[in-house]
Amino acid sequence: MAEFILRRILQALLVLFVMTVLVFFGIHVIGNPVDLFASSECTKACLDEIMVNLGLDRPVWQQYLIFLGNLAEGDLGRSFTHGVPAMSLIWERFPATLELAVAALVLALGIGLPLGFYAGLRPESILSKVIMALSMIGFSVPIFWIGLILILTFSVYLGWLPAIGRGELVSVLGLEVSFLTLDGLRHLAMPAFTLSLLMMSMVIRLTRAGLREVMTSDYIRFARANGVPEYRVLGWHAMKNLLIPIVTVLGMEFGGVIAFAVVTESIFSWPGVGKMLIDAISVLDRPLIVAYLIFVVTMFVLLNLVIDILYSLLDPRVRLGAGAV
């Protein structure tokens, strides 16, 4: 077990190192950020001064070593445009993204599981076919377009839901959250739903396919033959078997959801890290871009580790130390 975790951590560090090299040098190939945000009256001397201030006058490899040294101390550099440490900007923005992603996850499970369950139990009914067709569309359609349609319907025509921002915030344990106020919930509804669609489609499909397989198994027949009530058979005996693939896939997808939040946040002007990244890209704020990437990749690696552990809790057959490589 300890060896397994250690091995995973080493693996993760290697991935991180490769990513820093790729991202850092990749970003440095592109244009000079100073040209973008220095005022047009700025002379050559003034430009040089900015370059020195930002450390851009040194060779790239030196910049990278400095960057790596700082990284070891948890410092990812200062944002060119905001003038504050990139990490503090990310920490400031991240709760908004996390709230959005978690809300999407809750929606995906809360809506996807029952729909998938229904489609699995009554595969021949019309409603099931509609559910499956919708999940197919959820898979195919670019989510930004769904976002647009939602805005058009609920903001522009019906005027029920606000199209931008987070709304009224409440502080919980030092985190600002939207979902505890009515106004915040109204702001959260559309972006969270948009972001959840892909996951929801996946949950529907996994649940349906899994349920159809599980329901023909002997152990479900055995539970029924023992008179175990149907709600218990479906809600626990079958459900626990279904949750294994669902948790695995959702765990792997959750990182993708954080990444896809870039799109959702841009549409709904949700002030999270995704919106920040797009803004940073448009002004070539290198440290901020690099910091975001390192942050997201680190989160990925941690998530995968958590999923492995969660998986072993759900499925007793998986032995962490022995089975996993």
Binding site: V15, V18, V23, G26, I27, V29, I30, M252, G255, G256, A259, F260, V262, V263, L277, I281, I289, L293, V296, V297, F300, N304
Partner: peptide
Amino acid sequence: DLQLSLPTILVALILLVI
């Protein structure tokens, strides 16, 4: 594996920035 473990949108985004 590394490629597939990263979300497509993120990789594409970075490449286009570069």
